[in-house]
């Protein structure tokens, strides 16, 4: 292992630590901070289960954004969907595909489920280019519309550019300059605790760029608006049931 490989190993561990500790710390702050009053935006579900379904509707379908702005919803939804698909496709190794193997095997689920899942899973393989397209759509809207341009900081553009770098390099690796997949798998697998470290694939600068961008995103995450990923589940206007007449809500600091 040469020093450059050690650098990328160190980067991965640093990014993992910053992400986990930073995000964990923020989750803890949100958890410990009380809601002194019942403030759901109404009409709201009257039960906890209903409120959970409401939050799920926001997290899975971006329902309020859909009502608010169709273009932002379209590009935003496409981007998040692409990220979800990309994360799943990247997870094939931890999901059980042996290093050097190429894809998940669904046949163990039985022929019926396999016939259902297989084509969908294969189709997602072709969706990669949608990710950079969605990010470009969001960038264009942010810069183009006077109102969003007014509210945008360097950081807002920077995060989109970071995502564009990640998505763009990912697509290039898939369609244009394919890296040594074996070497990449060995390197990434070697990052798991308990496995021997493997050298970074130094012959694949595009991969190293992609990897570095992802690690940067992880380190930026706990200190940026990316926190919305967790925060959406903590928003009292969405996750509180509308039942203040039926249930007396009391918070220690407010009931002195």
């Amino acid at each position: 292992m040469n020093p450059i490989s050690w650098f990328f190993v160190g980067l991965a561990y640093a990014a993992g630590a910053v992400f986990a500790l930073g995000f964990g710390w923020k989750l803890w702050i949100w958890l410990r901070t009380p809601n002194p009053l019942i403030i759901p935006t109404t009409p709201a579900p009257t039960t906890a289960g209903g409120a959970a379904a409401r939050v799920a509707g926001e997290a899975l379908f971006f329902k309020s954004l859909f009502r608010g702005n169709r273009w932002t919803w379209f590009f935003g939804y496409l981007m998040h969907l692409s990220i979800a698909v990309a994360l799943m496709r990247h997870a094939v190794v931890p999901l059980g595909v042996p290093v050097g193997g190429s894809d998940l095997d669904f046949t163990a689920l039985g022929p019926a489920l396999n016939d259902l899942i297989r084509p969908i899973w294969d189709a997602t393989f072709r969706l990669g280019p949608l990710f950079p397209i969605a990010v470009i759509g969001l960038l264009a809207r942010r810069a183009w519309v006077a109102r969003t341009r007014y509210i945008s900081y360097a950081a807002d553009y920077a995060i989109l550019l970071l995502l564009l770098g990640i998505g763009g390099s990912g697509v290039l690796m898939k369609y244009v300059w394919e890296p040594d997949v074996d070497a990449v798998h060995h390197f990434v697998f070697g990052l798991n605790p308990g496995h021997p470290f493997a050298p970074a694939p130094l012959g694949d600068p595009l991969f190293l760029f992609h990897f570095t961008m992802v690690m940067t995103l992880m380190m930026v995450f706990p200190f940026s608006k990316l926190l919305h990923v967790g925060g959406i589940f903590f928003s009292p206007t969405r996750n509180q049931p509308d039942n203040p007449r039926e249930v007396r809500h009391v918070t220690p600091w407010a009931s002195r």
Binding site: T33, P34, P36, L65, N69, T72, S235
Partner: peptide, 17 residues
């Protein structure tokens, strides 16, 4: 004292909706 304030100040993505 107010989770609403803490969360709202943390998570806006300036989407413009």
């Amino acid at each position: 004292k107010y989770r609403s304030l803490q969360v709202f100040l943390d998570i806006c993505v300036q989407c413009g909706s």
